[in-house]
Simulated assay, not measured.
Amino acid sequence: MFLLKKILSALAVPPFSLILLALAGVLLSRRHPRSGRWLAGVALAAMLLMSIPTVSILLMQSLALPPPITTAQLRGVQAIVILGGGVDDDAPEYGTDTVGRATLQRLRYGAWLQKSSGLPILVSGGSPFGSRPEAEAMKETLEREFGAKVRWAEAHSRDTAENANLSAAMLWPAKITRIALVSHAWHLPRAVPLFERQGLEVVAAPTAYDTWPRSYAERILPSAEALHRSSTALREWIGIAVQRLRK
Rank of each mutant, 00 (worst) to 15 (best):
I57V: 15
A12S: 10
F195Y: 12
Q114S: 06
P53F: 00
R75E: 11
Y209D: 08
I82W: 06
S157F: 09
P68Q: 09
L39T: 09
I240H: 04
R132F: 00
L48S: 05
R108E: 02
A208I: 07
M170F: 13
G86F: 06
A111P: 13
K5G: 15
W237A: 14
D159C: 13
A191H: 11
Q78E: 15
S127K: 05
T232E: 13
P53N: 05
L113A: 09
H187Q: 14
P53W: 01
L3T: 15
I220N: 07
K6S: 08
P133W: 02
L194K: 07
T98G: 12
A191Y: 06
A168W: 00
V242L: 14
E201P: 10
G199V: 00
E145P: 01
P14I: 00
L3H: 15
V242D: 09
L63V: 14
S127V: 03
A10I: 09
V192H: 03
A224F: 02
S215M: 01
R75K: 08
G125R: 00
D97M: 03
T160L: 08
R197M: 10
H156D: 13
F2T: 03
P14C: 01
S124L: 15
W237M: 15
K149M: 13
L20Y: 05
V242I: 08
W172R: 15
L200Q: 03
A180V: 09
A224K: 05
R190W: 11
P189W: 01
K115D: 13
A205G: 12
V203L: 07
G199C: 02
S56Q: 06
G100P: 03
F146E: 02
I52L: 12
S62K: 14
P173H: 04
G84P: 12
L234S: 02
L20A: 14
P189N: 08
A185F: 02
A217L: 12
E196R: 14
R30D: 02
L113Q: 01
P92W: 03
E225N: 07
G130Y: 00
R30V: 14
E143S: 14
S230H: 12
F129D: 07
P189A: 10
I7D: 09
R144M: 05
Q73T: 04
L18S: 14
A185C: 10
D210V: 06
L107K: 02
